[in-house]
Structures are given as structure tokens and as C-alpha cells.
Design a binder for these strands. Structure first.
Lengths: 371, 371
DNA sequence: CTGTTAGCGCATTCAG
DNA sequence: CTGAATGCGCTAACAG
């Protein structure tokens, strides 16, 4: 007899034999314990433990024709913003029996299309995708994926299936409004590489200024519109585009010879950091002579000197709730709200406290030891 | 006949029928084109395209009993440092037919053990694990995993299989030595939550000071030794430990009532950022009155005011090269060097230019547009 | 170079 | 609540 190699591990048949039951009963005892009698459940549990039986997930997926893989598409693995989202997803998947498969779309719609195609090969049980602006082709693939698709980190009236996120437009507008509210007159928008979500923020910025009757296109300071895709083989160039440096340079130029501005809304916190340092190097007082606001509210914003205003968004929650939604649906529960707006928070701190009237709280205490 | 549901997609048999060959020939044409005649290869290729055939990876894994899954264990998804590593890994996996499965060990050895156990269920084709200090149980599981195991981001004389990284001890010592070289006398070590790699850096720090005859345990300023594992369900507390804030607080205390110090080596860049802001808020001049150095060399270090010294490590390369090593081995190539030291680089900038003698280069130019 | 046969390990279907 | 038979889609092994 030519036997196949088989990796020697105990199979469900071994467990069944040992427990003196049929294989299917073992299968059921493991997946739907309530469908198996108390006694058998125990016998089987013992056999599993004695043999160190571990179900083969590939066989399970093949036989049941569902993979229990949740595919996650993120535009970047570098930016902290998606690190937090991923952490939420991983925190949310625990003890679910689901596997996560991450694809990096590199902020590139063509790459995204290809990744979606690849991902569909694995017949995922669900898909979590960042953003709501997929190409027509991508959207079609996702609609036909035959599984729940959760869009996150943005919001839309017309989700493929379900969306959990917030409005970048309103977030951008709200922060800009804050800058205007405290009395800044010429507010600039700094950005590095733009993506569709950045564009939303920018649109909010523009609308706020227009409503105030002080919009001027010269106030939009950006570096470019497309992020170069990471060059696969090249090892050296991944460090060459420094966002912080862009923030610094943009501010230096604005101070030197650009249009006179008295505040800047930075498309992200790192840019704001760079802008702050530029002000420091030029003895420009923040917030008196220059207001600075960021976006994301990473932890260093609170620790900066002065503490920096930013828009806090719920990254972790996006991931976590997306995972909960997936789990619910795979458990047969109804979709529920198809549009979940997690909102955002305009965090006002010293860097935009133009009149000293915000009453920004002093830094709280953190336990520490100085040995 | 009771037919199984089957998801309707074309199978290899459909392709074989259409191409008028046996299923196995299709299989071979797809995986080892050189084992199939030119003519058949073309016919089969056409059939594949016409049917939109996509091989089922679960069936493939089951039949061949190897999964083509590369399991990656990282201690954290939050810190940029591992984002870069992951990016390297994803950049390195393209067009390899391999899948990546990430597990988050949360800097917790028990979690790591559990994750390794879980991961082995998937019978990975290779494992990439961060660090070299696994528990005995973990190490044993990895040794018996029956697949290549690449340890990364640290170095050891005794790798499980292969290690690609660098010495945290030497990196810590080298930066400390730099601080001493430029004339700082009382150099402190700031750290937040410590892990085994941080400990290595600290040990290097201590040795450098000891060799200089100026070691004093009071110079070690840390917040604690264990990172609390992320609380799964809790949505609010993930933001409560701010590394930047720790850096700030540690520096404030050091300036107030701690031992007099004139420089600080921060265990990471965010801590250094916080320390820099603390100095700014107290009118302490950097680098004259206080030298500050970080670790990792994230991009904002160069943009800070003053630019901050740090230790540049090769995060992306660690991931990328680990992936290359995996691919080579899965292709049957020999392991090669079992210990690959990628080294590090002490980047000296303004924040430690105590005597103005480093000749730190001025900021280079970055293309930009100010519309 | 190509085909035949016989599983990989599990879950679905249908029957008790 | 339990079991027997069957097949998920693919590939290793063995022929030709």
C-alpha cells in the first residue's frame, strides 16, 4: 500500500477511535458542544487532551468550504494610525477561531485591486477594508465576494455592506472652525502625500474658510498627490520621505516668503511636529504668533511644548468594532446598523490657545519612579 | 446523489477537462511549468484563463500537507518599530505564493507561548519570531516546529535555526560612549516599559559608564518592568500610557530634584521627544546644558529642534531579509549564515553636539511646492 | 512528459 | 442525539 506521508499528527479519527465514538461526533463535540451529550463530550475531551489532538484547519476549511479567514486590507503598515487599527482587530479576534490575513495596499488603488483578487482566492469569511473609495472594479469584487465586507476609517452613505468610521470632512472642518473660533485669521493647510481621506479633511478645511469668507487657495500647502509605492527590492530609500521634515520645511517656507499665515492645520501629527520645531528654530511663538493643529492625536501631542491640539480619532475602536461586527455576522446575527459613525474629537491644547482662554488642563500625573 | 454544496467555482478538474488533459497535469503546469511540455502548458494556460480558474489554497495545503503560510510573531503592533519590520516582511513576500499570518504577543511570554501553540496548528511553512529570548517551552515548540524558524531584531550565539538582527547591548553601549566622548559627565538612562531588548541596551549603557568609572545606579530612570497586556474589551485605556509623557515627566523630575545629570540616553525616540519638550519648557539648553539621545532614529528625530541623535537600526531590512531567508530555504537552498548581524548606526546630531564639533550636516533640501 | 489511483482530514448529507 | 457513507479540491506516489 502506498501510504501518503501525513505529518504523523493525530487526526479526528484517532480521537474518535480512542473515545469509542464516530468521527463526526468528535467534530461536533468540538464545534457545537451543545449538540453532544454531556457524557460523550467529556470522554471526547479527555481523548483530545491525551492525544494532543489539534484540528487541521485546512481540512476543516476544505470540507466546510469556509475558511474562517478574515482578510484585512490596509493602505499602509508604516503609519501608526493603521497600527492602532490592526491592534483593535487583533484584540477583537481573540478566541474566535478566526484567522486574520493582512494585505498592504500601499495607498495604491491598482495594488488594492490586485490584493483583493488575491485575497478572494482564499475565500475569506469576511473582509475588512480601509476607506470607502474603492475603484469600480474593486467594489464589484467586494460586492461579489459572498461574505460580509466591512469598510472602516471613513464613512459613506452607500456602504458595500457595512461601514464603521467617521467623516474626515467634518473632522477637518471642525478643527479649522476651532482655529477660526479662537481668532486666527489666515489658516493654512499643510499636507504631505494626499490620499482620499486627506482630501476629505482638506475639503472640510476649505468649506470652513469659505463660510468665514476668508478662503484663499494659496493657503493650501502640499507636497504632492501621490505616494510612491514602496520599491520592493530597494533597501535604502524607505527613509527618504520624512513627514516631519516636510512639516518643518513647509513652515520654514511659509515663514520666509510664503503668504503670511497665523495658523496651520496639519494633515497629520508628524507634520505638526515638524512645523512646531520650525517655529522653535525661528523664535516664532506658538500659539501667539502661530497656531498649530494636527490630526490623529498621537500621544506625543499632549507632551509637546506647547501641548498640541489635534483631532482624536478612534482607530482602535474602528478595528475592534469591525471585528465584532464580523463575528456577529458569522454567528448569524443580523447586520444591524449599516452605517456606524464613531465620530471624532477636537482636542484643544496650548498650541492653539491663542488668547489663553481655552483653560487647557495642566498635565495630569503619571505614576513613575526615579530610582 | 447527494451533492455537496461546493461554491460553484471552477476546479482543477474543470480546467483539465477543458484542456483535454489529466488534472495532475494542470496541477503541474501551474506549479512546475518546466515539467510540462510547451504545448500543453499553453493549452492549460488558456483554459485557466477562460474559466477564471483560481486554485483552492486550502485543498492544496491539505493535499500537500504544507501550507505556504509564514507565521510572524511580533511583540507589538503599536510601535512603529515593528510596523517597519512588518513592511519589510510584506515587501519581501510578494510574488512568492506565501501567505503571512501575524500573531501579536503583546510583549508577554505567556501570550507568546499560546500564540506559538496556535500558530503551529496551521502548520506553517516557516516562522519568523521577534527576539531571541523565548521561554524554554516556546523554544522547544519552535525547535520541533519542523520548519525554518528565523529570529529577528536581536542577535544571539545560539539561534534556534537562523537569526537576523543586531546587538542591542552594543548599540546601547555605542550611543552611551558617544555621549561620553563629547564630554557629558553624568549620563542618565530613561526608559518606559522594559523588555528584554531594552535590557540589552541598558546593559550596554551600564558597561560604558562602568568602563569610564562613572557608573551610578541612580542614573537609571525607568517607569516599570512590565507592560500591561492590552485589555481586550476595554476601549478607553489604550491611550493612558503615553511614552512621550513619560519622557517629559522623567526629565522634569531629573531637572527638579533628581541627581544632577547633563545628558540622557532614552530607550526610544518618543521618550527622547518628551525629554526634549521638557527641556524646552524649562529653558534648559540642548545640547549645551543637556544632551539627549534616542533609539530607533524615526524620521522626526532629524526634524527636531535641535535635531536629535539616535541609533538607527535596520528594521525594514530585518523583515525583508528574514523573508528572503525563508524563501531561499523553502526553495531548498542551504541555510547559509546562521547568524546575520545587520549592525546599527550611531547617528550624531545637534542634540548631543555639546561642543559644536560634530559638524552635523545642515538639513538637506526636499522638493516641495507651496502653491 | 503524462495519467491513474488513492488519499490528505474533516464536515456535510442523510439515516437511524 | 449519534453514525456511515461520501466528497471538498488538490496532489503524492506510482506507473506508463
Amino acid at each position: 500500500m502506498r501510504k501518503r506521508k501525513s505529518n504523523g499528527r493525530p487526526t479526528i479519527a484517532d480521537v474518535a477511535f480512542r473515545a469509542g465514538v464516530g468521527a463526526i461526533t468528535v467534530s461536533r463535540a468540538l464545534r457545537h458542544p451543545d449538540q453532544v451529550s454531556e457524557a460523550l463530550r467529556k470522554t471526547i475531551g479527555d481523548a483530545v487532551r491525551e492525544l494532543d489532538y489539534v484540528p487541521n484547519l485546512n481540512a476543516r476549511a476544505l470540507a466546510s468550504s469556509h475558511s474562517n479567514v478574515v482578510a484585512v486590507l490596509v493602505p499602509s503598515l508604516t503609519q501608526n494610525i493603521f497600527s492602532d487599527v490592526l491592534r483593535g482587530i487583533y484584540d477583537g479576534v481573540e478566541d474566535s477561531g478566526l484567522r486574520i490575513e493582512i494585505a498592504n495596499t500601499r495607498y495604491n488603488v491598482e495594488v488594492e485591486e490586485r490584493q483583493i483578487f488575491e485575497i478572494l482566492r482564499h475565500e475569506p469569511s469576511a473582509i475588512i477594508v480601509s476607506g470607502t473609495e474603492q475603484t469600480a472594479a474593486s467594489r464589484k469584487m467586494l460586492e461579489n465576494a459572498g461574505c460580509p465586507v466591512i469598510q472602516i476609517m471613513d464613512i459613506t452613505d452607500d456602504p458595500i455592506h457595512k461601514v464603521i468610521g467617521f467623516s474626515h470632512f467634518h473632522a477637518g472642518k471642525a478643527m479649522t472652525q476651532h482655529l477660526l473660533d479662537v481668532g486666527y485669521q489666515r489658516v493654512a493647510f499643510f499636507s504631505g502625500w494626499m490620499n482620499s481621506r486627506s482630501q476629505g479633511r482638506l475639503a472640510g478645511f476649505v468649506e470652513a474658510l469659505e463660510e468665514a469668507g476668508i478662503y484663499d487657495p494659496k493657503l493650501i500647502c502640499e507636497m504632492g498627490n501621490e505616494k510612491p509605492s514602496a520599491s520592493q527590492g530597494s533597501i535604502k530609500d524607505y527613509h527618504q520621505f520624512s513627514t516631519a521634515r516636510m512639516g518643518r520645511e513647509l513652515m520654514l517656507r511659509a515663514l520666509e516668503n510664503g503668504p503670511r499665515i497665523d495658523a496651520v492645520f496639519c494633515n497629520n501629527d508628524v507634520l505638526a511636529l515638524g512645523a512646531l520645531f520650525a517655529c522653535a528654530s525661528c523664535q516664532v511663538e506658538v500659539p501667539r504668533q502661530m497656531g498649530i493643529a494636527g490630526f490623529n492625536d498621537f500621544d506625543y501631542m499632549e507632551a509637546a511644548q506647547p501641548a498640541m491640539s489635534s483631532v482624536r480619532i478612534h482607530r482602535w475602536q474602528c478595528g475592534y468594532q469591525a471585528m465584532q461586527a464580523v463575528r456577529n455576522e458569522l454567528n448569524g446575527e443580523p447586520v444591524g446598523e449599516r452605517i456606524v459613525d464613531l465620530g471624532f474629537e477636537v482636542v484643544k491644547r496650548g498650541s492653539t490657545d491663542r488668547n489663553g482662554t481655552l483653560g487647557v488642563p495642566p498635565p495630569g500625573d503619571i505614576p513613575f519612579t526615579l530610582s
